[in-house]
Design a protein around this nucleic acid. Structure first.
Length: 266
DNA sequence: CGGACGGCCTGGGAGC
DNA sequence: TGCTCCCAGGCCGTCC
């Protein structure tokens, strides 16, 4: 389930390998992937992350937007001489670059999307890696809402890029119970939450993301952050801070993993 | 308007 | 072994 660190890892790799490249041909194997009426050929002038979206800026009047959702994967490889033009298993789209590189979009669950977009980008809240992600702004947002902090962190219109894994990991690091109402957090807690989110995300990017099952880097390699996780998927195992058992709880339809002892006060 | 919730989709794991 | 059931969750549409 790609979240900010996974998407950022993929974007950094794509920037190195295909930014500035000419896209000569594309194939959409599964129409459910979204509206896609891009002109061809076109040049990819820049590559960016927007929340969990991957954006290809182009020299034409539009951008290519990728969203991996749950099980999407972008793999980059050298075009082989005998390469079939038919889709591989779960392959939903394919892009051919003039350099000979081929970008394949795989997605078993078909939640992922690829879109040729001329109008504005989707509305995304604060970028946790951006300069404007400061404690004061976060505190204002938290105070103006009254939802479980866990669910607020998952809201892409408020903060862009956190998903279930990093929301849980950040709350653990900040010692905040996931069910706490956002407007009950003190200024000190907001400050700590901000720095915890940044720390967790930066560390996860360094480790190349979190591979549970589907996520892979563009060369097919797994990330390594799952080896360093503190709470996600660790229900019943000992808390790495206090030794008590990690618990799991449904909050707003999502499973939250946390330590009931050192994240007390829910 | 904010917030809660169901639907989309499939593979994999649990349980029998 | 093989079947059924349920869960994973990002985002959107719908409803209150």
């Amino acid at each position: 389930m790609p979240e900010l660190p996974e998407v950022e890892t993929i974007v950094r790799e794509l920037k190195r390998k295909v930014s500035g490249e000419k896209l000569v041909k594309f194939q959409i194997f599964d129409k459910r992937i979204g509206r896609f009426a891009a002109p061809s050929p076109l040049k990819v002038t820049a590559i960016d992350r927007h929340g969990k979206y991957i954006i290809f800026h182009t020299n034409r009047a539009g951008k290519i937007l990728f969203h991996l959702r749950m099980s999407g994967r972008l793999l980059l490889k050298k075009r082989q001489s005998g390469m079939s033009s038919l889709p591989e298993k779960y392959e939903r789209a394919r892009f051919y670059f003039a350099s000979g590189l081929v970008l394949q979009f795989f997605d078993p669950r078909r939640f992922g999307t690829i879109e040729w977009r001329k109008e504005n980008l989707p509305e995304i809240g604060l970028n946790p890696l951006g300069k404007d992600f400061v404690a004061e702004k976060l505190k204002n947002i938290l105070s103006s809402r009254s939802r479980a902090i866990k669910n607020l962190l998952l809201d892409q219109k408020i903060i862009g890029g956190l998903g279930n894994i990093y929301a849980d990991e950040s709350l653990w690091l900040a010692k905040i119970h996931p069910r706490r109402k956002s407007d009950s957090l003190s200024g000190a807690e907001a400050l700590l939450l901000r720095s915890s989110i940044v720390k967790v995300l930066r560390e996860a990017i360094k480790k190349g993301g979190f591979t549970l099952r589907d996520y892979r880097k563009t060369g097919g390699e797994s990330g390594r952050y799952q080896l360093f996780r503190k709470v996600y998927g660790r229900a019943g195992e000992p808390c790495r801070r206090c030794g008590k058992k990690i618990a799991a709880l449904k909050i707003g339809g999502r499973t939250a993993h946390f330590c009931p002892d050192c994240q007390g006060g829910g």
